[in-house]
């Protein structure tokens, strides 16, 4: 019967997979797990409340929001756009390389760009499309592939570098969870061990984008 305590995992997997209200799914999963494991409702509330209070450090990143808010109001995005616009006469692959580098450096400094909405759709994709058809028109498939690669570049830059910022909610969540599991870790150490991942993934993407350029060139020569 002890396998019943895995019911909460089922709830969270199914709830997230169906796209139900996330906060409600998390609390219901917690409640079901506790009840099937023989914890009564009052004890559950105590564990829930204590768990929430003990994990307040995960929400410390809220302290950085006023700064980011003021900078946004005063043109953080415009300044980033100006930097990106300086890259002209490049191949699509090179544009992706440069954007990913900017994205990762910004991420390491806690600047979270609303990448797809603010940069990829309005700026990076049109630039890459223009760069791609310098000599001849692109096929509809190539147009779609450039769009896909532009969005992928944003995601690579976001995910492989977000743990480089010590006050990111992901680093804080890792540190807080490990503390709850009885193996406390230092947030700065998480940042340190993210460097190999960020560097290797970036180098990999350089080759990947270079191959993308080569393929586009080849199809044009035909």
């Amino acid at each position: 019967m002890e396998y019943l305590s895995l019911l909460g995992i089922v709830v969270i997997v199914v709830g997230f997979a169906l796209g139900l209200d996330t906060i409600a799914v998390v609390v219901i999963a917690a409640l079901i797990t506790a009840l099937v494991s023989g914890i009564d409702f009052t004890s559950f509330l105590t564990i829930l409340g204590k768990g929430f209070m003990d994990n307040r450090m995960v929400s410390l990143f809220f302290l950085t929001l006023p700064t980011i808010g003021i900078l946004e109001r005063h043109g953080l995005k415009q300044a980033a756009v100006n930097l990106i616009k300086k890259m002209k006469k490049l191949t699509p692959g090179r544009i992706f390389d440069i954007y990913q580098a900017i994205r990762e450096i910004a991420g390491a400094f806690g600047i979270s760009l609303q990448g797809h909405v603010q940069f990829i759709a309005p700026l990076i994709n049109p630039m890459a499309q223009a760069a791609g058809k310098v000599n001849s028109e692109l096929t509809p498939l190539e147009v779609d592939q450039i769009k896909g690669r532009a969005a992928a570049t944003e995601n690579f830059g976001n995910f492989f570098a977000q743990n480089l910022f010590v006050a990111s909610s992901s680093v804080l969540l890792i540190a807080s969870t490990m503390k709850s599991l009885g193996h406390p870790v230092d947030p700065a150490g998480i940042v340190l061990y993210t460097f190999p991942v960020a560097i290797i993934s970036y180098i990999l993407c350089l080759f990947y984008n270079h191959a993308f350029d080569q393929k586009l060139m080849k199809s044009k020569e035909k």
Partner: peptide, 12 residues
């Protein structure tokens, strides 16, 4: 993270 605490308390 809080859910993690409940999981730990329940022996998941």
């Amino acid at each position: 993270a809080t859910l993690g605490v409940v999981f730990t308390a329940s022996g998941v």
